[in-house]
Design a protein around this nucleic acid. Structure first.
Length: 895
RNA sequence: GCCCGCUUGGCUCAGUGGUAGAGCACUCGCUUCACACGCGAGGGGUCACUAGUUCGAAUCUAGUAGCGGGCACCA
């Protein structure tokens, strides 16, 4: 046979994907059953600037497992791929490239710059889509989307116009998060709060016409230049007298009032708060309540403005801070400075400290959208979060506290806002410039230069990718999608917004379930990140252990955070090799037989081990299906692993070897080979969603794998395991009695092996084995499998009787069901050692018996526990008693 | 500050009211004709701690400790 002894993942990974893609296996159209149920997933679109990391590999594995499973199960399956234009990230990427040419984006101008970004996108963007092919992701590339595609952009404009017409989008001057580095406004979600060890400065403001001073505490002294008031709590007795008085603001000479506001916490600092409406969100609101002026003293580059005064204008905010403090100290108005830890807001992308500024931006009112999402959650429990705890609560709590969303960005890369201004400054919002001209009655229009937040277009992803606003077939067929699989950090940014826009524009949830994956941490439990450079590259893991092994590891991660460990992938690499070699054995002994669906039935003369493996196989398929239905990927992987390795390889192959490897070509051999091949084939199908490459590679090599094995929905397709039917559990083949019988034989063989090992019997040496069972059924099971016992226990003569009559010099064991075992070992046995061994075993049984006895002798237990439990315990204690009796007898006989 | 989660063998993790599990690591024995990325046989845990509920708790409840996460307008 030309099959190598070792599985080479690279060989299998080379050819199959290309064929699958070329043959259209990934497209839902491959399914020819008009009545087929539908399964659909949209991919969380990776950033066009991104490359594959473990988080992607993890999500993609799970999406692919489900897609492949459902496809094999006959569903019309669509897994839709695509990418996100990732406004800020991409713009930064290209800006950095320009910098190498000593250019800025302003040198190019907007139009040329955007052209340049498109060029970059075409040439270097989307590296990740190539990497996804390596992963084996069964996405339909013919439906690949990009958020800046013309059709998706049309959906964006449509949504914007409709929301504007509904009065939900508005333009306003408000305090916003400004990134002085990226030169754009950011939404609250794009701002990171970080603990910061700073200082709290106590500044004194003189009361006008008095020696009195009011002390305020601040972490940002430079903002005092923009103060237009001081606030105290109305209930604060300390400040009762000063409410209403005028203060003379140092350094500026500005006269500012003291106002009373409930917001002020008397416990904090001095109980008096300086109010800078132009540079602090809370002060902004207080300013609104008390009609305080807004004086912007910091500009968009975080430099002080002319309004900050001649001495400060042009200074950086931190230089200004030092100067303000120095001046206060000089004036004797700096009361004290204390160390103080507080949280500081940073730009999520560039880590620059955010400057709160008042600015004119576009906002989306969230109240109506929020209410629809909350109602969907409360009334229909949709989407269903898995795991429910803690994500459902995190999601609804966030919704409840939702504020308006700042949707404009001062970038060039993105969807330009479909709003135009007339020479009079009138705003016209329209789907196209032409429409805007008609509406405005003039062609002297200037379009708003801003673009929309990247997440605005991602929010439409589940329906914009399917053709909305047109009522396409895809939209009708695949919306709402079945499940969304993503990481927890974009529940707010993305998941919630898809729900809200889905409800608003489709009047229906975008997906039934949301599965939140765990996070893969580095070996020390730290999050993997670029800055820490502690990430593990999935592509390197693929190279080292193979894609299938990596996928198996990733699938078993499920929804909990785990520390990465190569060893686990290595063990799945070994598993892949095990599968390879099991198939190798089957193929080496396949002459005269082929895979046959009919072999998976039983008849009167089907041997026990065949009945047994069929029972195990069907049980496995049932458990795997149930696990996948509940997104219990870990459970599915474990069950498949143990079925294949323990049941199929360790026992079934060994049990069927005699017949399968027989020299003579006869009916038994053919039947045994057929069953072996057919069980292997079913096992490969069960494994395929997790390990697509090795299963396809082997499946195609099996004799008899033709179109007839495909799911009826794919009858016309070329043979491929990915379109074979996913095995259904046939309950008539699950037989507990058969499993018990086989287990008795397995236990017996294990006990003999145990004795051999403990007695240091040479592997090649055959020993006589004496078995006794009073129970007729059990005895006949042993008798029927005498040759199996002989071979697998390396026994010489096997004697089976009703009562044990073994020589004194025997090693013994007692088995379940009252069976006994003796291995005569004349001359090899140390009687004292054997007695010790048996006593140890008796002690084990006795301590277990004592525990059970204690329970049974408790009248409360007998009274209150379920009757079947009590019966079960009584039966168990009886069995133990019998075994202890037998052991006792044996020990005595030893003398 | 508020809310939530986790704590199980040396390591990484399953399990979740009725006899403690896996993989890796470890010990012993094997070139047994599919596989040494293997085969066979073993050792190892009072399931963080305390109190409670229960006939019975690793599993439920409360608290404690350690770790982690989410939210927050404390100047």
């Amino acid at each position: 046979m030309e099959i190598p002894k070792q599985y080479d993942p690279k060989q299998a990974e080379q050819h199959h994907y290309e064929r699958w893609e070329r043959s259209g296996f990934f497209a839902p159209e491959i399914n020819r059953d008009p009545a087929a149920p539908v399964f659909s997933i949209v991919i969380p679109p990776p950033n066009v600037t991104g490359s594959l990391h473990m988080g992607h590999a993890l999500q993609h594995t799970m999406m692919d497992v489900l897609s492949r499973y459902k496809r094999m199960d006959g569903y019309r399956t669509l897994w839709l791929p695509g990418m996100d234009h990732a406004g800020i990230s991409t713009q930064l990427m290209v800006t950095r490239e320009l910098k190498k040419e000593k250019l800025t984006r302003h040198d190019l101008g907007r139009e040329k710059f955007v052209e340049r970004v498109w060029k970059w996108k075409k040439e270097s963007g989307g590296q990740i889509t190539l990497q996804m092919r390596r992963e084996g992701a069964s996405v339909d590339w013919s439906r690949e989307k990009f958020t800046m595609d013309e059709d998706l952009s049309r959906a964006v404009r449509e949504v914007f116009v409709r929301l504007y017409d509904d009065g939900m989008i508005y333009r306003g001057n408000r305090i916003v998060n400004w990134c002085p580095n990226d030169q754009t406004v950011l939404s609250d979600l794009e701002v990171q709060k970080e603990a910061h060890a700073g200082k709290l400065y106590y500044l004194q403001y003189p009361v006008k016409g008095s020696n009195q001073r009011v002390t305020v505490a601040t972490t940002r002294p430079e903002t005092m230049l923009g103060d237009t008031g001081v606030a105290v709590n109305p209930k604060d007795d300390r400040y009762r007298d000063v409410v209403g008085v005028t203060l003379e603001l140092p350094l500026t000479g500005r006269q500012v009032p003291v106002v009373a506001d409930e917001f002020v916490d008397p416990e904090f600092g001095t109980g008096a708060v300086k109010v800078t409406p132009a540079h602090d969100p809370n002060d902004y609101e207080m300013g609104q309540r008390h009609n305080l002026a807004e004086i912007a003293v910091i500009d968009q580059h975080a430099k002080m403005t002319n309004d900050a005064g001649a001495e400060f204008a042009g200074l950086d905010r931190y230089q200004a801070r030092d100067l303000v403090v120095e001046k206060f100290a000089g004036l004797g108005l700096l009361e004290k400075v204390v160390d103080y830890e507080f949280s500081i807001s940073k730009c999520e992308r560039c880590k620059t400290v955010i400057e709160p500024l008042t600015s004119t931006q576009w906002f989306l009112r969230m109240d109506h959208l929020r209410d629809m999402a909350l109602q969907l959650s409360r009334q229909e429990k949709k989407p269903r979060f898995v795991p429910e705890i803690p994500y459902e609560k995190i999601y609804t709590t966030w919704l409840e506290n939702l504020r308006d969303w700042t949707i404009s960005r001062q970038l060039w890369w993105g969807h330009q806002i479909p709003a135009w201004y007339t020479p009079d400054g009138e705003v016209v919002v329209a789907r196209t410039e032409e429409q805007a001209r008609n509406k405005a009655g003039t062609d002297q229009l200037v379009q708003d230069p801003d673009v929309l937040d990247t997440w605005f277009s991602s929010a439409l992803w589940p329906f914009s990718t399917l053709g909305w606003p047109d009522e396409t077939d895809d939209l009708k067929t695949f919306y709402p999608t079945s499940v969304l699989i993503t990481a927890r950090d974009i529940i707010f940014l993305w998941v919630s917004r898809m729900v809200m826009t889905g409800m608003k524009f489709m009047h229906e949830r975008p997906f039934d379930d949301v599965f939140i994956t765990g996070t893969i941490l580095d070996p020390h439990g730290q999050r993997m990140s670029k800055t820490k450079a502690n990430g593990v590259d999935p592509l390197q893991v693929f190279d080292k252990f193979g894609v299938d092994a990596t996928r198996l590891k990733l699938a078993s991660v499920g929804s909990t955070d785990v520390r990465w460990n190569d060893k686990q992938v290595e063990s799945y690499r070994n598993f892949a090799n095990k599968i390879w070699n099991a198939a190798r054995f089957c193929l080496m002994n396949a002459d005269g037989a082929k895979v046959e669906a009919g072999a998976l039935a039983i008849s009167g003369d089907t041997p026990l081990h065949d009945r047994w493996i069929l029972s195990r196989l069907n049980k496995t398929s049932q458990v795997v299906r149930n696990a996948l239905a509940d997104y219990e990927f870990h459970e599915a992987v474990q069950v498949l692993y143990h079925f294949f390795w323990d049941d199929f390889c360790d026992w079934y192959i060994e049990l069927s070897k005699t017949e399968v490897t027989a020299e003579e070509d006869n009916v038994q051999r053919t039947r045994a080979r057929t069953t072996l091949l057919s069980v292997l084939e079913q096992a490969l199908r069960l494994l395929h969603p997790f390990m697509p490459y090795i299963t396809e590679d082997l499946w195609l090599r099996l004799p008899g794998t033709d179109q007839s094995l495909l799911h009826p929905a794919y009858k016309e397709a070329e043979p491929t395991i990915m379109l074979a039917a996913y095995p259904k559990a046939q309950s008539e083949l699950i037989d507990e009695n058969v499993e018990w019988q086989m287990q008795s034989v397995i236990d017996l063989i294990s006990r003999v092996r145990n004795i051999r090992s403990e007695m240091n019997i040479k592997p090649g040496e055959a020993v006589p084995v004496m078995i006794a069972a009073a129970d007729d059924a059990l005895r006949s099971v042993f008798t029927a499998n005498k040759n199996q016992i002989k071979r697998l226990a390396r026994a010489g003569e096997v004697m089976i009787s009703e009562k044990l009559d073994a020589p004194r010099a025997s090693a013994r064991a007692v088995l379940a069901g009252g069976a006994e075992l003796a291995v005569p070992l004349e001359g090899l046995i140390d009687f004292e050692q054997e007695r010790q061994r048996l006593r140890k075993e008796r002690e084990k049984l006795e301590s277990e018996s004592a525990k059970v006895q204690a329970q049974l002798s408790n009248p409360q237990f007998v009274e209150r526990a379920p009757a079947e439990k009590v019966t079960e315990l009584r039966a168990r204690i009886e069995d133990i008693a019998q075994r202890v009796g037998q052991l006792e007898q044996t020990i005595q006989n030893l003398g």
